[in-house]
Design a protein around this nucleic acid. Structure first.
Lengths: 110, 110
DNA sequence: ACGCTCCTATCGAACTTCTATAGGAGCGGG
DNA sequence: CCCGCTCCTATAGAAGTTCGATAGGAGCGT
């Protein structure tokens, strides 16, 4: 019943935030989720049901590589890291965000 | 085959732009489309296949009211206007945009 | 009469994100 | 030692948005 993405992120923004979260170094899934929340000062919460499909999709696309390891709490965890293509993608999505953000700001001010 | 919204707008932004376009006065469908393109300096093009469903949806929601009239070119056209609820919605979506935009900017700068 | 532009409209495809659900494995308290 | 809690990954199903393609009517100029 109703409302799904409106309550949370702007669609198309998830990839950008994940890429950015990984720009500082590898992280496991929930770690990414936490860092995104941190980076956006609590504005965006990435839920598991959004996160994992996104990670698989992005790995498929060649932007991420993963390895199994152990978390800080001795749990089995999958660590993700940006590939070279992933860094390029981050750059591209940043530019795209700027372009869009500027256009909308401009529209709202007129 | 591929690509649909990625090539154009950020999802969730269409309503905001339409509301803003109508803030200056009533317009018919294609007029809205043109004004959005203008306001965003050509960054966003709202295609008919996106526009009309959106207009119907927003009228259904009570944000818009419509009347049949004649365009500047003597064509039959449906003119849309913001209702009181529509103006309120515009305000809400503006705030929401700011909130989101600030959060992402903040994430990208860190 | 013909084609072009203007204007509205709908359908089906594609994609994203959400809620809900599931389960394994370490860890601490009783 | 067992039970429940947290951590971690994962999938299925639903909902909603936007896009491309397509359609058609009506005015206008040639």
């Amino acid at each position: 019943m109703g409302r799904q993405q409106r309550s949370n992120l702007l669609q198309g923004t998830l990839d950008l935030l994940i890429l950015k979260a990984l720009a500082l170094g590898e992280l496991h899934g929930l770690g990414i989720s936490r860092r995104v929340e941190q980076m956006t000062r609590g504005t965006f919460a990435v839920k598991p049901g959004s996160l994992f499909p996104a990670l698989h999709r992005m790995e498929e696309a060649g932007w991420l590589s993963s390895r199994w390891g152990e978390s800080e709490n001795n749990r089995k965890a999958k660590f993700y890291e940006l590939t070279k293509a992933g860094k390029a993608q981050l750059g591209a999505e940043k530019s795209e965000w700027d372009r869009i953000s500027v256009a909308i700001q401009c529209a709202l001010e007129s």
